[in-house]
Design a protein around this nucleic acid. Structure first.
Lengths: 109, 109
DNA sequence: ATTATATATCGCAATATTACGATTATTTTT
DNA sequence: AAAAATAATCGTAATATTGCGATATATAAT
């Protein structure tokens, strides 16, 4: 159906999935990397760097904002985007936790 | 168009996006967690634990296999799935690298 | 006031994803 | 050989995502 059955999963599983979506498209990875490099904080700069239409970049920014991993500071007529530190930290914890939980033991050797 | 313009991004960006897709759905997070806990390696056990149809679980397993993060050992008529250590390590590196690259400095304070 | 600039949103088309029943394929068990 | 068990695949429906042109909005500059 294209509709995820979120109710059958735990809060944690749904949150990890949502945080992962921030990184699950190369354009969003590129945006996050640019924001970290601090070379392009303003939306228009991101549009210049990425070969994507302004509307498309804006849509990816909206998705990243929905997840909470970035925040936008309105500075008319511009908007300055940056990483949202607490949520970034949440992502570090979440991914770190699951990625470290595998000890290298597989059940079918 | 629903079709990602992979050609305008770097190999690394595309790979990170792909690895992130492994975690970008709660069912796949649940599957990976179960495989790590070693409680359910066999496909049928996963179907029992997740409230999803067998066909749906099988589809998620296929996607995880495509990414390479799990492998399936055929043990007819069963298939035993487990984490694929080298790709899991690749994911740890990739996410670790990008997540650690943010130093807490934001450009719009 | 008018114009220019910057970004968000709308509407649309194309493609991808999620989910599942039904079927198929393969191997074991009987 | 027939039946049972397990998992993959097919087909299909519903929804989501990606991308962009066009438009709307809001402020700054003229």
């Amino acid at each position: 159906m294209g509709v995820t059955k979120t109710e059958i999963f735990t809060e944690q599983q749904n949150r990890i999935a949502d945080l992962a979506k921030a990184f699950a498209h190369p354009a969003r990875v590129a945006i996050l990397q640019l924001l970290i490099a601090r070379k392009a904080c303003v939306c228009g700069d991101l549009v210049d760097e990425l070969e994507l239409a302004q509307a498309t970049v804006s849509q990816h920014l909206k998705e990243l904002k929905r997840i909470g991993i970035i925040q936008g500071e309105i500075n008319p007529p511009r908007v300055c985007y940056c990483i949202n530190p607490p949520v970034w930290e949440e992502a570090r914890q979440a991914f770190g936790s699951i990625l470290e939980s595998f000890e290298g033991v597989t059940c079918c050797d």
